[in-house]
Design a protein around this nucleic acid. Structure first.
Lengths: 351, 351
DNA sequence: GCATCTCGTCCGCTCGGGTTC
DNA sequence: GGAACCCGAGCGGACGAGATG
């Protein structure tokens, strides 16, 4: 356990192998200007001496890291988890390692992470930003130094963005609910998630209007106090929604799948049956949605698509010094119809 | 969008502020030997010039990073997601930033990540290691350079470890199932997860024996082909388990909650009712277990406990050069009884 | 003598011009 | 005239001894 500071440097292995440090360096990097025998000898002694090239030094000298930063609010939401996983794989596929960091939706922390990463830690950044003006400013500033791809869009944002067309997804779900017989769809959302909320909410309202649904009702759930409180909040809201039978919704559209699951639970708690008494739909199509009896109707953009685009754009930026125009990709989501909105059968449709 | 390589260095801000680079350095680090006016002036010009200290250079010169590495197989499993989140928070609470990386259970990749991190990227590492002998060797080697805390235990592992007493958890669940009337408990597990599987499986067998349950049956699910195939595999196995009514289990203990949810789904698919026909229990108590109708009986160690211990140990290692003895912490899990094993009532007990 | 600041070095590695056979 | 290799100069900052008032 004696923690040897074992500073085995390029010097050590150079002298041990009887060459200069430059040669050792070349052995580990380019394939040029080096005899394969020498290279092998260097590798051998390197292994023998447990040599590990120092990334800091390399990064300092080279000015590049072959590494991209991934900044996410958290990783609790399965949707983000999946996203992070595929981003990592995609990045690795193109020779980049990945440096993941979490903001917990704290703009100050996000600031620190951006600065830290932009200061030689990574070559580019993929971020799901905090939703505040402050956040936009931060990103714009850092984007002037290294390329950033944001997974949320905002007018004033000056970096590339990649995201799903949430409004289409909401529209699809609303239409589905409508064709399933729903006349009164309520929208349950999370307070604080302004940008995303706004888009989804607007889509909810406009689609309701387009479908001739007079009833609209939006309820915000407070998630700032943690999961427990949030669950209680949902129960409270559900209870109030169904207090007057004649004015109760016959369908609930939740901000995302997690919330939808919580809502279903709250409904059961109140003795309201899904989908018999009320239809419930979520958004994001998290993997568990298909197994978490009751399976959940949902919509989402393939996270692999998001990841692919994000990586593509980032690598393009990194490879070409040409400061081409900013790109904003919108990917169409897909609708997944499952038990929570299927009255006729209990065999899950969709996947 | 013109990506200014904007190399604003300590030199620039030094000359702009009319001081030497050493002073600038001190302004950003120690509070010693510097006039508060000067410091303020330095901060101001630093901000004006968008100066960001280069982490690579700092790390190189200082030999320390105030950053810990977190290496996980992936982040899809909610249990791990939660863990990562709390580890990050705990680390931040003690002044460390966090560098998260994913192995996807690939020992080779793990090797690269370990090397990279150990080469000046981080001061210490918390890892949920791949389960192979190769992995053990890697960790031991790196542990000689910087402290590692493993979240899985293995005899030959020479680093600190922190983990839950899985066997106790399994025992608790088994006893619960037994007292709920189960006589024939089957164990469904994931193939490939050797270490963890072995411990849980052994506990399953020994507890069954202790409880006088003659029937034992272990089925391995193949998860190497991805989620879809895994689901099919579970359906197939469930079908075969219940082919002969007289020899079918009356309870299923799943390797973890995710698998349990999949199993419940498969059971429903086969027309078998939970908990009426068969009890189902998982392990890990993922948050969704409490809302994913049917709610799930489960057991787990608080991930915050794990995180706290891991961080504690790591910081101790980092703060004291004394190479004290290796520690192996075992934290008792807690049992969560919910609907999937409650016949008498549908009101969820436990949380 | 003391608070404040400067300067030279080094951290470990990359890079490109120069050298050797 | 190459192929193979050496060397010196940084990359951006930290640090400690010495300078300045």
């Amino acid at each position: 356990m004696a923690r040897k500071a074992s500073k085995v440097t390029i010097y050590d292995i150079a002298s041990a192998a009887g060459v200069s440090r430059g040669t050792v360096s070349r052995a580990f990097n380019g394939n040029t200007d080096i005899n394969s025998e020498t290279r092998q000898r260097i590798f051998d002694t390197a292994k023998r001496l447990h040599y590990v090239p120092n990334m800091n030094a390399r990064g300092l000298a080279k000015g590049t890291t072959e590494c991209i930063g991934v900044i996410m609010p958290d990783v609790l939401n399965p949707y983000i988890s999946e996203l992070v996983g595929v981003i990592e794989k995609s990045a690795r596929a193109v020779g980049f390692s990945t440096h993941i960091a979490l903001t917990h939706n704290d703009a100050e922390l996000q600031q620190k992470l951006l600065l830290r990463m932009a200061s030689g830690q990574v070559d580019g950044i993929i971020i799901t930003p905090c939703e505040s003006d402050e956040s936009v400013r931060q990103i714009n500033m850092i984007n002037a130094k290294i390329p950033i791809v944001s997974l949320k869009f905002r007018e004033k944002l000056e970096c590339d963005t990649v995201m799903g067309a949430d409004s289409d997804g909401i529209r699809m779900i609303m239409e589905h609910l409508h064709s399933a017989g729903a006349k009164k769809v309520a929208f349950l959302t999370i307070s604080g998630q302004d940008w995303t909320h706004l888009e989804r909410h607007e889509a909810y309202l406009s689609t309701a209007k387009k479908l001739g649904l007079d009833y609209t009702k939006t309820e915000s759930i407070d998630y700032s106090e943690g999961w427990e409180e949030m669950e209680k909040d949902v129960i409270r809201i559900v209870a109030s929604l169904f207090k007057r039978k004649d004015n109760a919704p016959d369908a609930i559209l939740a901000y995302d799948d997690i919330l939808a699951l919580v809502v279903i639970n709250a409904l059961r708690h109140s003795g309201i049956k899904v989908p018999d008494d009320v239809l419930v739909a979520g958004f994001d199509n998290i993997r568990l949605a298909s197994v978490a009896n009751m399976t959940l109707t949902s919509a989402s953009v393939e996270s692999s698509d998001i990841a692919r685009f994000a990586i593509d754009i980032l690598t393009q930026r990194l490879n070409s010094s040409s400061s081409s125009k900013v790109r904003h990709v919108r990917i169409s989501p897909r609708l997944y119809v499952r038990d929570s909105t299927s009255r006729e059968t209990l065999k899950g449709k969709g996947k």
